[in-house]
Amino acid sequence: MRNKGTPILEFRSVSYRYSGTVAVDDITLTMSAGDFMAVVGPNGSGKTTLIKLALGLLKPSGGRIRLFDHEPGDFLDWHRVGYVPQVAAGIQERFPATVAEIVAHGSYSGFAPLRFWKRTKTAEVMAALEAAGVAHLSDRRIGELSVGQQQRVLVARALVGEPHLLVLDEPAAGIDAAGEEALNDLLQRLNHEQGISVLIVSHDIGAVMRQANTVACINRSLVFHGQPHELTQNELGKLYGFPVEVLLHDALHEHR
């Protein structure tokens, strides 16, 4: 991509509080064009809140955010951003939209009064579905697909607008290992071949370590921000608040 290396997303001492709880505490980080940045952290660490702040869906209680050099709240160039929300929580089973209709929404570029009368399955929509590997599902209802397929449809929806930045919130949640690998391959190709910047939230550190060139570990505050190979055991311990053995023990305890 042109301008590789220019900052596209910046957090300066950003905090977010709701009803007395601090969800995000004094986070400063920078993402540059061409980056593949992973945000990792335990459940409830503020990862999704961070994404919502970056996209202007939440207003920070303190600090400053710049998205393509604008306040996210005043940002208008949404075609530069492709957002893939968490799908596992639920698309209505009865939602009558077809896959092609959902993907066509991604090419929205403001008021167009005659859009209702135009074809939905355009070449761009089909190309995006092809890229996400779900072209064969174009006429199916979004609600009747598996979670993994819905995830890919939303990736296609994000791709159809030819974004510069792709933001994915826990895309691996609710999909099987094969689906996760296919998705990871796709993101890797988009990043390497088309220079699309990727910001991905995950709680699976292993998976994103292999792909990302930048990692932000957060547990309300920023624990680590840098290249994945610089991340130490010590910082991982700090991220989860206690040594890994204890974490494992706790996980076993919870599932008993």
Binding site: H105, F116, W117
Partner: peptide, 23 residues
Amino acid sequence: VTVFFSELSQASFDPALARVTGV
């Protein structure tokens, strides 16, 4: 409804996603 069909559809599908699409 016909003029704002895409906007209405998006807002009912996922309001947060719609906002990040510019609706």
